[in-house]
Nucleic acid binder design. Structure first.
Length: 581
RNA sequence: GCACCCAUAGCUCAGCUGGAUAGAGUGUCGCCCUCCGAAGGCGAAGGUCGUAGGUUCGAAUCCUACUGGGUGCGCCA
């Protein structure tokens, strides 16, 4: 139930009537007519720009249209007042009953209150994390993981049919490096002295993998050339790394519907098929690329390569899909992977990349545009860097200094809920400061705590009411006499609750789950505000001694806050706190 | 050199398919704690929305140029 959408329907109906009555010309487009909460509450509960948007096409003055519209709108019993203001805004004040009904609705709908059908069941594929299977996930991956996961949940909540997917880069040279590194650990497990040269992974996390390999194959690979063991060790090591990564994700509460292996594209004709599809559209050719200007490529020499004509779909230069030795570049399997996604018939594709892959956006969009003949939109969301702090001091990450911070380090220290919430307190394309101490601080400036605290307070007051003999099940509360919720401060909170379904749609439309986190902070803030008013104004306290009916209505409001917080936190993948400490 | 992202209060950041007097936290200043949970509360001051143009009834939001910061730019992925 989206009250804003309902009132917009009322406005549109009124506009239709004005057309029928001849006050407005036929054939007007109402698509830009919006009903929004005004920034200034003095302007009322909702405002519509209808008169201003239609003034020009209708050839009338905005205020004239608004006057006619206002006269019709007040006939709806949900709208108490409709008045023209400013350049032609129409401000509406809704009846208290309207807001009280929202509270009742939350209690009957539960956390489904904000669910939307805007997605119309369209199939969306969200690809995220997709870290190389060469080691544990680090902090940067953590942000992408949380963002992608919350985005997927958000879209699901907004009525899309969502698939969460991880692309395993297990086909390139980096897994050979991994295999060699594991081989060294394997030799070490056999008591040999080994040296980790440049181009190998020296991390401790491979020690148990080397051990495990020894237990599996004994000394079969000792002293043998690469051709004897590389393929097998590669497979063994990649599987071990994916186990590690799955554990990391599980610890963070990130779920995947599918892990898609890059390797599965090789030797199966899948890459060739994707390239052929592009060739059939005349987008594959042999050519020589210009060197990038101003970057002084030291060892540049012109080479003829097989190129994808990505410029035909908005890219800046054409991109190579084969190396000079005719093996595939990394881009070729990526094309094939996205071809696979296109062929699976998704209505929308979303890729979540780290910001360091920003240069990759245009070519990937070009590829999907070409492969789907412009039919499948691809949205690529980049997550910016996470800067780590400890007690306000920057915390430098360095593999060599051993201060390399993994996802596990973060989650072990602050827990999955705090990690997830904090990662969503910034827009995806803005840098994020993560202070290990501040995120655990229990104060107003810490949004995680502030939201959880609101939820805990609701539970506290719920218990208290129950002790006072008031029936507080959701069913009882939904049936309560909500007309007793009449104070301005209470209606204000109900208004904020009513914004939730609208916010879900905005967040889903923009693919920006951080909006949910900010909304929850505002909702919590409004709730705490009402709570604090109770200190000065006794009749605003949630528990009214000796007045079960009034208490019940106030508890209903509090509980509605809690329900929306639970729904919002659910999208973010954070467990609501029943109580603190 | 080119492409993409970013620039909003002293600081950290929000800001709705363009909407009214641009918001929050923090910091600063003033007042307040016998009160359902004061790990606080109320209030004030604080802005040329990087700069300069453009689009229109209306621009932080869209377009162009510039300035500053970040990321990336064939045979790594």
């Amino acid at each position: 139930m989206n009250l804003f959408a309902e009132i917009r329907d009322v406005v549109i109906n009124a506009l239709d009537q004005l057309v029928a009555q001849g006050h407005l010309p036929q054939g007007l487009d109402f698509a830009n007519v919006a009903v929004e909460p005004p920034r200034d509450p003095l302007h009322g509960d909702m405002a519509t720009n209808a008169a201003m948007v239609l003034a020009k096409p209708a050839g009338q003055k905005p205020r004239d249209i608004a006057d006619h519209l206002a006269a019709l709108l007040v006939k709806d019993d949900r709208i108490d007042v409709a008045e023209v203001a400013g350049p032609g805004f129409l401000n509406m004040r809704l009846s208290a009953t309207c807001w009280q009904a929202v509270v009742g609705r939350v209690l009957t709908d539960g956390t489904g209150f904000g669910r939307s059908d805007m997605g119309q069941g369209k199939r969306v594929n969200v690809e995220y994390v997709s870290a190389n299977p060469t080691g544990p996930l680090h902090v940067g991956h953590t942000r992408g993981a949380v963002f992608g996961d919350a985005l997927a949940s958000l879209l699901d909540y907004a009525g899309y049919d969502v698939t969460r997917e991880y692309y395993i880069n297990d086909g390139g040279a980096q897994v050979d490096v991994l295999a060699r590194s594991v081989y060294l650990r394997y030799l070490e497990a056999h008591g040999q002295e080994v040296a980790f040269e440049d181009g190998t992974y020296p991390g401790d996390y491979l020690i148990p993998v080397g051990q495990a390999l020894k237990e599996k194959v004994g000394d079969a690979f000792v002293g043998k050339g690469e051709q004897f063991w590389l393929a097998e060790v590669r497979e063994f090591a990649t599987a071990a790394m994916m186990d590690l990564i799955r554990q990391d994700l599980a610890q963070l509460g990130v779920k995947m519907d599918r892990f898609f292996s890059e390797k599965s594209l090789y030797g199966t004709g899948r890459i060739e098929a994707a390239i052929e599809s592009l060739r059939a559209k005349g987008l594959i050719y042999r050519g020589v690329l210009e060197p990038p200007k101003g970057k002084t490529p030291e060892d540049w020499e012109p080479r003829e390569q097989t190129l994808f004509k990505s410029t035909a779909h908005g890219d800046d230069v054409d991109r190579p899909i084969q190396k000079s030795d005719d093996s595939w570049t990394y881009f070729a399997p990526d094309i094939a992977y996205h071809f696979d996604k296109v062929e699976r018939g998704y209505d929308l594709l979303i890729d979540v990349f780290g910001a360091d892959h920003g240069g990759y956006v245009k070519r990937m969009k070009a590829a999907v545009s070409a492969l789907s003949d412009g039919q499948t939109p691809l949205d690529i969301k980049l997550t910016q860097l996470v800067k780590l702090f400890k007690n306000g001091e920057p915390f430098k990450m360095s593999k060599r200094a051993g201060t390399f911070v993994t996802l596990r380090d973060v989650v072990d220290q602050v827990g999955p809920d705090v990690t997830r919430f904090v990662m969503l307190t910034r827009k995806n394309d803005a840098n994020l400061d993560f202070d290990f101490d501040k995120v655990l601080e229990q104060s107003r400036e810490n949004p995680v705590f502030y939201v959880q605290y609101a939820n805990a307070r609701v539970n506290s007051v719920l218990r208290r009411a129950q002790e006072a003999g008031v029936r507080v099940s959701d069913a009882d509360l939904a049936a309560a006499d909500l007309s007793k919720l009449a104070h301005d401060a209470e209606i204000t909170l109900a208004r904020k609750i009513a914004e939730w379904p609208r916010l879900v749609e905005i967040a889903a439309r923009t693919n920006e789950p951080h909006r949910v986190a900010f909304y929850l902070y505002e909702l919590a803030s409004d709730f705490h505000g009402l709570w604090n008013k109770g200190n000065d104004v006794p009749q605003l306290r949630f528990v009214q001694d000796g007045d079960a009916a009034t208490t019940q209505s106030k508890i209903a409001l509090a509980r509605a806050v809690s329900v929306v917080i639970s729904a919002g936190l659910g999208i973010l993948g954070v467990k609501p706190a029943e109580e603190l400490r």
